[in-house]
Nucleic acid binder design. Structure first.
Lengths: 218, 218
DNA sequence: GTCAATATTTTTGTATACAAGAAAACATAC
DNA sequence: GTATGTTTTCTTGTATACAAAAATATTGAC
């Protein structure tokens, strides 16, 4: 499955927006980017449209595209929606989840623990993602799964930032355990509540993080 | 806010896919479409990419784009997610909803009733949409609101089809009433449950509809 | 010097031209 | 007749060229 340049560029640009290379509100110049990537404007435009669709940039007709970093309010909102979607996953999972999936969840958690011990943020991050992905899949609703993955992906950089907080990884682990326990007990409502808290707290933490750390804001 | 041709074409194509002009799995030929719309391939490609992003067509690299009508299973799944999202809206609304918004909901319902009496499906449809839009807005979460509107829009043609069922409009009205009552009582859980049923039933009805009626599709 | 109107430049949107990969057609071997 | 390998055609992806709109600069009036 060969991908086209435009797709690769879209990913690259996504990364550049996430890591803050492009400031909020900054205009992305097509010809500049074309030079930068040594391609013509065509694949650049394709990539930009893709980013516009996923909400990372705003495209104003005949004016250009501008990076659009979500503000604190929107971030909280997004985490809230993420929390609710995952809560739905948990509730749906509770009755249908397989023993195998439960074992996978345990395993992911196990590796998360090891990552915390080893201070390996990358590993933690990967296994945490796996944990959540399993949950999405176990909802039994493929469409829901897709939507969850989409939003999860979008929140990725912010979650990552937030994980740097002292002790957050350890705390997060405990929450995971509680979720799995509830699922094992087949208690959808409890699992749902646990995960809602688990995700929503991330938004709040992030909020505090930037509130304290960011005197200069837009 | 002048729009570009590509956006207009995207909308047109969307309509053509919805109304079944293009069969499922059919390949959309760029040059054919370019001729049909009397433009070059460039805006056509833009439009197709947009459709691909919203899931109406599947784009296979170097092969082309193919219309991708959701099957019965996926439709049910989508309605289930819609139901859950709206349930979240209702729950969040319950505590924060304004009297004004409640009045608007009543008004929309009133007009829905009139539409049912007048057998005016279009009017019913419009007011029904307004009812749901108010709910989304009253969640107080703009991101959630956007996501709801997006999915609502995507399900639009199927909902419409389903409304043709005998007595469904009338029944739907009653469900709306129950939702508003729960909101007035500030009972988020009840409102949530009511609307979850209200939306989810649409998916099921649709399922039955096509299951019984499907030998000849339109 | 400020403001407004016009001219210039820049930038987006669209058309066309070209390149490369995939599908189809054809030919040859068995 | 079928299967395989080659050639041709067709289609997508990218580059370039052009058109139109917006931004910027320039000129002139006051």
């Amino acid at each position: 499955m060969e991908r086209k340049r435009a797709d690769i560029i879209a990913e690259e640009l996504e990364g550049l927006i996430f890591d803050g290379t492009f400031d909020n509100g900054e205009r992305l110049d097509e010809v500049q980017l074309a030079e930068k990537f040594s391609v013509s404007r065509t694949p650049i435009r394709e990539a930009l449209q893709k980013l516009a669709q996923s909400g990372l940039v705003e495209q104003i007709p005949r004016r250009g595209v501008f990076v659009r970093q979500p503000g604190p309010v929107e971030l909280i909102e997004m985490f809230e929606v993420m929390a609710e979607l995952e809560a739905v996953c948990a509730r749906l999972s509770a009755s249908r989840i397989s023993d195998e999936a439960l074992a996978d969840l345990h395993e992911a958690n196990q590796r998360c623990n090891e990552a915390v011990d080893a201070q390996d943020a990358d590993l933690y991050y990967r296994e945490n993602e796996r944990f959540h992905a399993i949950l999405y899949r176990q909802s039994g609703n493929r469409f829901l799964e897709q939507e969850c993955l989409r939003l999860h992906r979008r929140l990725q950089p912010f979650r990552r930032l937030q994980l740097r907080l002292r002790g957050r990884m350890r705390q997060s682990m405990g929450e995971h355990e509680a979720i799995v326990k509830a699922l094992e007990a087949g208690d959808g409502n409890r699992a749902s509540a646990e995960i809602r808290g688990h995700v929503a707290v991330q938004g709040e933490k992030f909020h505090h993080l930037i509130a304290n750390l960011k005197p200069a804001a837009e």
